[in-house]
């Protein structure tokens, strides 16, 4: 698997992933908590309820996303630097560390469980990605040209 050139080189891409994940979380969280706050407010206060729900919760969702994405990117870069290769195992190992680091305050058992769950999740993602890659490669496979039905008579 060759490296992905639509992304920046390693140490600085961490910043990009932090910001990207945070923005995604804030925008998605605004939509999610906006709808939720609107529906859960009494009539007459629905818009103000939506606004306060967004203000209270969207940045937190963004922060959770951002920390996850940034930690993952940091571990991904570190694993790449140590292993000196790029394959799906990078993401799985980085997912293991990310899940573990985020659950570290919950005790040993919780840390291990969360790390394993996270690496399984990343493994599934990578598997689906590989499937898509294989499928698109199969779609663009080189085609042999068809033989003409009848041999041209020699003149």
């Amino acid at each position: 698997m060759s490296s992905d050139h639509s992304r920046d080189p390693c140490p600085i891409v961490i910043l990009n992933d932090f910001g990207g994940a945070f923005s995604m979380g804030v925008i998605g969280g605004s939509i999610w908590h906006g709808i939720k706050g609107f529906r859960n407010s009494p009539y007459g206060e629905r818009r103000i309820g939506m606004l306060s729900a967004i203000k209270a919760r969207a940045p937190v969702v963004g922060g959770n996303f951002g920390v996850w994405g940034g930690l993952f990117s940091t571990f991904d870069c570190s694993v790449k630097a140590v292993r000196k290769r790029e394959d799906p195992w990078n993401a799985i190992i980085a997912g293991f560390f990310t899940g573990g680091a985020l659950a570290f305050r919950g005790g040993k058992k919780h840390t291990l469980q969360s790390a394993i769950m996270c690496s399984i999740l990343l493994g599934v993602f990578e598997g689906v990605g590989l499937m898509f890659q294989k499928y698109s490669a199969w779609q663009n496979k080189p085609q042999a040209m068809a033989y003409p039905d009848q041999p041209q008579p020699m003149a």
Partner: peptide, 20 residues
């Protein structure tokens, strides 16, 4: 300061740096 491919890069880098 760093090369950018457009608004989405500016957004990601700017937000990421300030957030961090």
């Amino acid at each position: 300061l760093i090369p950018s491919r457009g608004w989405s890069d500016d957004l990601c880098y700017g937000t990421g740096a300030v957030y961090l």
